Simulated scan of single mutants.
Amino acid sequence: MKIAVMGAGAVGCYYGGMLARAGHAVVLVGRPAHVAAVRRDGLRLETLHFDEHVRLEASTETAAVEGAELVLFCVKSTDTESAGETMRPHLPAGALVLTLQNGVDNATRLQAVLPQEVAATVVYVATEMAGPGHVKHHGRGELVIAPSSRSEEMAALLAAAGVPTQVSDNVVGALWAKLILNCAYNALSAITQLPYGRLSQGEGVQATMRDVVHECLAVAAAAGVTVPGDTWQAVQRIAETMPTQYSSTAQDLARGKRSEIDHLNGYVLRQGAALGVATPANRVLHTLVKLLEGKQAAA
């Protein structure tokens, strides 16, 4: 199957690399330095279980998605609509687009600009770009996909490639569960530039995270969303299963890039305001990250 990865960062490269390793025709759409390295040497896929160079296609042009039956849509939440617009002319009508992104509303936003089916997807993986053409995997890797006409087919394809995948009727709840994890860790990791394991042991961190989780759950409940599982246990498990991982927000700030904080703690802040739920802990974390972004932009 031809599979395209739109936005070949750490998440897209990990899953694209796994699919290419399983024999699929994968094309990565990414930045010039990364594309040049992949074309020259293949994608270095360094996981907990193997370290290999995987051969696959790479391009800086969105037109490279032409003919793809499956698209892993991995752009930043801030770029969802614009990336969807540029991709639209090149996709066949029967393609399925999976939104492997942070935040809870990307699938809805993308479906508004694409005629192809879009299925919201929850990603549980710890990865980083260790350099151009080199993705490093720190742990986990499972996906949860919303139902669509081809979700079961694609879930089986992903599972056969070594990516545990399930289709769920409550992906909105699962997206909120992931959002809450991000709200608990991302800003704190970004502000301190600490990985999850060290961060979680800091003075006052557990209490702060509990405040964030409590606010997020209150907003979700007000929105009529059922968040599955034991949320606090899931928060604690992140530090245990991904102790060396820095949040995507931390990685963005370290590189001087704009983060997705408006779609994480900022989203909870806006939803809370609309629903009459106070979110002071999320407000403080959102404000601090925005200040750091502004400081970098002015430097």
Rank of each mutant, 00 (worst) to 15 (best):
V26N: 06
E203W: 15
M129P: 06
S149N: 08
L269P: 00
W176Y: 13
A107I: 07
G133R: 13
L19K: 11
T231I: 15
G229R: 00
V212R: 00
C74V: 13
H137N: 07
E203G: 10
L72W: 11
A273Q: 11
V268D: 02
V26Y: 09
D252R: 10
R210W: 12
V172R: 11
L292G: 02
A297W: 09
V219C: 04
G197M: 03
H263R: 09
M242A: 12
T244Y: 10
A63T: 09
D211F: 14
A58P: 05
Q251G: 06
A63Y: 03
A58L: 13
D79H: 13
W176R: 04
V277T: 04
L48E: 12
I261E: 01
K178A: 02
S59I: 11
V205G: 05
V29H: 08
L275K: 03
H49Q: 13
L181A: 02
P92I: 15
H90N: 06
V38R: 02
V135T: 09
A20N: 02
P280K: 01
I145Y: 05
V5Q: 11
H286W: 05
S149W: 06
I3N: 04
Q236C: 11
L114K: 08
V135D: 09
L291A: 11
V104D: 00
V97L: 04
C216P: 00
K136A: 15
T241P: 00
T108C: 14
N106S: 08
V205I: 15
G202H: 02
E69N: 08
N170M: 01
S259Y: 03
E61F: 13
V97F: 03
N182Y: 12
A37K: 12
Q296S: 14
T60W: 06
A8C: 04
H214N: 15
A83D: 04
A218F: 14
A83K: 10
E128W: 10
N182V: 04
L217P: 00
R21H: 07
G84T: 08
N170C: 01
I3R: 03
T165W: 02
A58D: 07
L158P: 08
S148E: 07
A25H: 11
R40D: 10
M242L: 15
G139P: 00
N282C: 11
